[in-house]
Simulated assay, not measured.
Amino acid sequence: MNYENILIEKENKIAIITINRPKSLNALNKPTIEELHSALKALELEKEVRVIILTGSGEKAFVAGADIKEFSDFNMSEGSQLAAKGQELLFDFIQNLNKPVIAAINGFALGGGLELAMASHFRIASTNAKMGLPEVTLGLIPGYGGTQRLPQLIGKGRAMEMIMTAEMITADKALTYGLVNHVVDQTELLDFTKNIANKIANNSATAIGRAIKSINANYRDGINGFHEEIKNFGECFETEDFTEGTTAFIEKRKAEFKGTM
């Protein structure tokens, strides 16, 4: 499938999605959200793809927010629908994807851009990256999960300050907050991220999918994460990956996981 706003390349077991709207600093608009959903849904079904990396084109921005011109004249109903549809199509979709999604933040990650990075399973930033949720300067609040995921990642107090002041933080501060896992030079960002992705790709895809479900369960209302872990742990015993992993361990060889049930 041909896309207008994103680029996709594949290396070994890794797919790299690049948001490619450099003239607008890769801002998220409706077509881009729809294209990202379509691409992620297709990659989830591709057995040979084990890890997905999200990044932005150019050297300035990962995603510098949403396209404000699209909703500047919306009413309450339209605004609520915008947030609900965006969360369903992209942000919640990424969080619950059974394949790891890593955000390689190569510059500004603001508003919807930071929300996109936070929906990913973890984040790696370049030294020039800046992150923030500036929505209150527009008379808005974050609408793509920012008020929920940011406190989960960095704590309530810091999230309150970031959202209320609308100030950007540096990559180094994001690292101390626990918002990103690593900070590297921009020239090394993709290679560093690919290196981590390759380590993940060599492990059991079925086990990793169940680990994602179990970890996410801890953040869902009314769900007992321990019970979800027990369920997913038990299901692992019925997979070919479990048979291969334990057999390889006993035979003292490297496991060759197929990622099948």
Rank of each mutant, 00 (worst) to 15 (best):
K213V: 10
L114P: 01
R220L: 13
M160G: 03
M162F: 09
N75W: 09
A166Y: 02
G222Q: 09
I250F: 11
E244K: 13
K156G: 08
K10H: 08
V51G: 01
L25V: 08
K194S: 00
I196V: 15
G86S: 14
I124S: 09
L45I: 00
K60L: 11
Q148S: 07
A117F: 09
V101A: 00
M131C: 00
L140P: 04
L133M: 08
K23Q: 05
A217E: 02
D67H: 08
G113E: 07
Y177S: 13
F192M: 07
V136K: 14
L150H: 09
V184M: 07
E161F: 09
E167P: 02
A205H: 06
E46I: 03
V63E: 00
L114M: 13
E256L: 10
L110Y: 01
T247K: 15
F108I: 01
G112C: 08
P22F: 06
T32Q: 07
P22G: 03
G58V: 07
K41I: 11
N12W: 07
S204Y: 07
R123L: 09
E135C: 02
I8P: 01
L189A: 06
K258R: 15
N232R: 12
H37M: 09
K258H: 11
N98H: 12
E188A: 13
P151N: 12
G225R: 09
A197F: 02
K13P: 01
G107F: 05
K258P: 04
L28M: 10
F71G: 12
L90A: 07
T127I: 05
N98T: 13
M160W: 10
Y3C: 08
N20L: 00
G139N: 00
L190N: 08
T246I: 15
V183I: 04
S72W: 10
G111E: 03
N96P: 00
I124W: 07
H37K: 14
A211L: 15
G234H: 08
G222E: 07
N218A: 12
G107P: 06
E115P: 04
T137F: 11
A211E: 09
S77E: 14
Y144K: 06
E4D: 13
P31M: 06
F62C: 04
C236Y: 13
N20R: 05
A109R: 05
I230T: 10
L133N: 03
A129W: 01
K258G: 15
L40M: 15
L97N: 10
M164Y: 11
I102V: 00
S204F: 00
L140E: 11
A255M: 06
K194L: 06
D185W: 01
A104L: 00
G178C: 13
N26D: 02
D221W: 04
L133R: 03
I212M: 10
I14K: 09
D191K: 15
Q81N: 15
L190A: 06
A119P: 07
E4C: 09
G225N: 06
G146S: 07
S57V: 00
A84E: 15
H121S: 03
N5C: 12
L116P: 02
R21F: 04
I8F: 08
S80K: 15
Q87K: 14
A166F: 05
E78V: 02
I141N: 12
A109Q: 06
L7Y: 03
E251S: 13
A166C: 12
K30C: 01
V136E: 12
Y144I: 03
D73C: 02
M261I: 13
I230Y: 11
L54Y: 02
T187R: 13
K69D: 14
Q148N: 04
